[in-house]
Design a protein around this nucleic acid. Structure first.
Length: 317
DNA sequence: GCTTACCTGCCA
DNA sequence: TGGCAGGTAAGC
């Protein structure tokens, strides 16, 4: 499940392939992947054909492509990409290697494997022949365009950009925990001002963005805070510690994730490497807490799973 | 502020 | 075959 670190891995992997390139053609194989585009799939194709990619910018889990015309004039609109639950962006063609021969070779050596393009929904063809595939099994994610507006604090809108312009559809999204312009004291104050559960506030992308179910559980475990503690019942110091711990987990994930892809293949699978080894609570129901040995519990909360140590993360209500 | 819909594949 | 995975946004 792509959260902030996974989306940042995609941004870094994709950037050298697309920045400065022109979009030559767009193929929409699954209209539902463009359902957030106001004008529909055909309009998305028309709007993107012939425009140049000026930058790839990310805030939280939102990744957008800044667009300019052939003369380098900003078009005032961005191509939004959100990976949802199962989205991937992959590069093929041109300098990337993903043809049938190499796929067959892999299949022959490691047994049958699913077609990597099985859930291809949209493909962008760039002027140098590079193909960028948006692949998404569950179609929670998608591509659409959104006009640029100015960030309210006037600071750089996200990672990969140098001005305060961001898509209107991302303007309600808070800065993420790895954003140098984030005001952690203000985020902590917003959490402490509310009686809702601290986990629901961590997952609220308007307060601070980029955190999903996995990193929320990990951050809460690190800071020894239980998921259902009201925001208002967490001390200022512990709230700041929680935010710092969550940021630290995401930074570590980013470091590991950053080594698992090469320049020719933009890997977006959040499970690669890091997930198999480094999680302390998420997905570890019944296993001993790495800190105290008590069995990790899994409970259903807010229609999703919450993993926690019943000894380290005590009820504070 | 909570619930529901959107989605598909996998697993018990 | 029903439950589960969960990010986002609309609806109540």
């Amino acid at each position: 499940m792509p959260e902030l670190p996974e989306v940042e891995v995609v941004r870094r992997g994709l950037a050298p392939h697309v920045i400065g390139r022109t979009i030559a053609e767009v193929e929409v194989l699954e209209p539902r992947a463009a359902r957030r585009h106001a004008g529909g799939p055909a309009d998305l194709v028309d709007q993107l054909r012939g425009v140049r990619v000026a930058a790839l910018v990310r805030r939280g889990k939102f990744l957008w492509w800044r667009l300019e015309d052939a003369g380098g004039e900003d078009l005032g609109v961005a191509l939004m990409t959100h990976l949802g639950m199962s989205g991937q962006l992959r590069v093929r063609g041109a300098d990337a290697q993903s043809d049938a021969a190499s796929s067959d070779a892999v299949a022959a050596s490691s047994g049958p494997r699913p077609d990597p393009l099985r859930h291809r929904r949209i493909t962008l063809r760039l002027d140098d022949g590079t193909l960028v595939d948006f692949i998404d099994q569950r179609i929670f994610g998608g591509l659409w365009t959104s006009p640029l507006v100015t960030a309210s604090d006037g600071q750089a809108a996200g990672m990969g950009g140098d001005d305060a312009l961001l898509p209107a559809d991302a303007a309600h999204i808070g800065r993420d925990l790895l954003d140098p312009a984030i005001d952690l004291e203000a985020v902590a104050a917003r959490i402490r001002a509310r009686s809702a559960s601290v986990k629901s506030l961590l997952l609220n992308q308007e307060i601070a963005s980029g955190i999903g179910n996995i990193y929320a559980d990990e951050g809460l475990w690190e800071a020894r805070v239980r998921y259902d503690t009201p925001g208002s019942r967490v001390s200022r110091a512990r709230t700041l510690a929680l935010l710092e711990a969550t940021a630290a987990v995401m930074r570590r994930a980013l470091e590991v994730g950053g080594t698992s892809f090469d320049a020719l293949y933009v890997n977006v699978d959040g499970r690669s490497g890091y997930f198999a080894r480094s999680l302390s609570a998420y997905g570890r129901e019944g296993e001993p807490c790495p800190r105290c040995g008590t069995a990790i519990r899994r409970v259903s909360f807010m229609n999703r799973s919450s993993h926690f140590c019943p000894a380290c993360q005590r009820k504070r209500s």
